[in-house]
């Protein structure tokens, strides 16, 4: 089951920092579903996963919300 992180209303760089904090505490293979309504979140979470080697399983949009699912490497 993926842990849901709600970062709605937050602005750069907070969603990435909060993601980093949560992922740091998790074990390898743990999954997260991150919800954020900052339009910059999509390119940012993609870049963050690319750099940190955590796996970006997918990004979908529901209205203004951007929902990213990631797996800790």
């Amino acid at each position: 089951m993926a842990t849901r992180l709600d970062f709605k209303g937050m602005n750069c760089p907070m969603p990435i920092m909060k993601t980093a904090m949560a992922v740091k505490k998790a074990a390898s293979g743990d999954q997260f579903e991150i919800v954020c309504d900052d339009p910059g979140f999509e390119p940012d979470i993609t870049a963050w996963c690319n750099e940190t080697k955590n796996v970006l399983n997918g990004i979908r949009k529901e209205g203004k919300d951007i929902i990213a699912t990631i797996t800790k490497a």
């Binding site: 760089p13 990435i16 920092m17 993601t19 963050w48």
Partner: peptide, 11 residues
């Protein structure tokens, strides 16, 4: 400090 925080978040 935003750039510093971003880099720190990337480990």
């Amino acid at each position: 400090f935003i750039i510093a925080n971003g880099a720190l978040a990337m480990g």
